[in-house]
C-alpha cells in the first residue's frame, strides 16, 4: 500500500503521463481511435513492468513507442495481442480496448484477437516450411484449404510486403534460404495474409542492415493506408522517419505521448528531451 501510494503521488506530479483525453486534441482533427489503453499496469511476478499506461493508437496511422532497453515498450506491445498470456505469473490492471471491445478481459478469445492484431517479431521467425506455406499458415489454421484461394492470398500478401518480385519463382523453396531482410518481409507478409486490422512490430529492423531497414520502413509507410501500425523501436531516427505519433517509455511509464513532430522537436518533458538529444539511453 505504501508503495502504491508513493507511485500514485509520483504520477500526480507528472501531468504528461496521464492522458485521459486524446493527446493534443486541438492539433488532431478527426483522428479515429483504433486502440485505447486506459491506466494499464502490468506485473511479471512481483516486478511491475508497466505503470499506469494511458495511450491511444489511431486508425491508419503509424504509432511508434521508443525508449531505452528494459523500459517496458515490448511488454506493452505484447499486451496488445495478449502474447504475455504465455508467461506464467503475470497479471495486469487497467483496460485496453480495440475499437469498442475490451481486449484485456480474461475471457477473451485469444485466437480471434490475434487474427485481428498481427505481430512481427524482433528476430525474424519464419517457420521451417516453404515460402508459400509460411504465408499460407495463418489461413490454413483458420480452416482455409482451397488452393486457388490460398495462392491468391499468398500472392497478394507477398505483393503488399514488397517481396513478390523476389520470390515469385521460388515459392516452393524453404523460407530459411532467404536473406535476413527478406525473411523479415516474409514475416510481415505472413502477418498480412490473415487480413488483420492492426499490425504490431517489435523492433522489426534491429537485426537488419541499413538497406533492408530502409525497405521495411518504406513498406510500413505503404501499408498504413490499409492497416493500423504500432511500432516499437529503440531507434529514434526510425520512429521520427516513419511514425505519425510517438510515445516515450521510461522505467515502465509512458513519459510522453504526442504527435511525432512535436515530440521530437519540442518535447514537453525534460526526460524525453534528454533521451532524444542523446544525453542518456
Amino acid at each position: 500500500m505504501e508503495v502504491m501510494g508513493e507511485e500514485v503521488e509520483t504520477l500526480d506530479k507528472l501531468p504528461q503521463i496521464r492522458l485521459d483525453t486524446p493527446a493534443r486534441p486541438e492539433s488532431l482533427p478527426a483522428e479515429k481511435e483504433k486502440i485505447r489503453i486506459e491506466d494499464f499496469s502490468f506485473w511479471y511476478g512481483k516486478t511491475k513492468a508497466l505503470d499506469g499506461i494511458t495511450s491511444r493508437v489511431y486508425q491508419n496511422r503509424i504509432t511508434a513507442y521508443i525508449g531505452p532497453s528494459g523500459c517496458g515498450k515490448s511488454t506493452f506491445l505484447r499486451c496488445l495481442n495478449r502474447m504475455n498470456d504465455l508467461i506464467p505469473h503475470t497479471r495486469w490492471e487497467g483496460r485496453i480496448f480495440l475499437d469498442e471491445e475490451e481486449i484485456s478481459r480474461p475471457s477473451l478469445d485469444l485466437t480471434a484477437l490475434r487474427r485481428q492484431v498481427g505481430m512481427v517479431f524482433q528476430k525474424s521467425n519464419p517457420f521451417p516450411k516453404t515460402i508459400f506455406e509460411n504465408v499460407a499458415f495463418g489461413l490454413r489454421i483458420a480452416g482455409e484449404g482451397n488452393l486457388p484461394k490460398l495462392s491468391a492470398a499468398v500472392e497478394e500478401s507477398l505483393k503488399q510486403a514488397a517481396l513478390w518480385e523476389e520470390v515469385k519463382d521460388k515459392l516452393e523453396r524453404s523460407a530459411l534460404a532467404l536473406s535476413g531482410g527478406q525473411q523479415q518481409r516474409l514475416c510481415i507478409a505472413r502477418a498480412l495474409a490473415v487480413r488483420p486490422e492492426v499490425i504490431l512490430l517489435d523492433e522489426p529492423c534491429s537485426q537488419l542492415d541499413p538497406i533492408s531497414t530502409a525497405k521495411i520502413e518504406e513498406l510500413l509507410l505503404d501499408l498504413k493506408s490499409r492497416y493500423t501500425i504500432v511500432l516499437v523501436t529503440h531507434n529514434m531516427q526510425q520512429a521520427a522517419r516513419v511514425s505519425d505519433f510517438s510515445g516515450f517509455f521510461l522505467l515502465g511509464q509512458l513519459v510522453e505521448f504526442d504527435d511525432t513532430r512535436k515530440l521530437f522537436t519540442t518535447p514537453s518533458d525534460k526526460r524525453t528531451e534528454d533521451y532524444i538529444t542523446g544525453r542518456f539511453g
Binding site: 490475434r114 517457420f127 521451417p128 505472413r190
Partner: peptide, 27 residues
C-alpha cells in the same frame, strides 16, 4: 525449438494444439 517460432504460430491465431501439431512437433 526457438521461442520465436513457437510464438510466431500463436501470434497468427493458432490454438495451442494447432501450434503443437503444425509447428513444434515437426520442428
Amino acid at each position: 525449438v526457438p521461442r520465436e517460432i513457437k510464438e510466431g504460430g500463436l501470434a497468427l491465431g493458432a490454438t495451442r494444439l494447432q501450434n503443437l501439431w503444425r509447428i513444434i512437433i515437426p520442428s
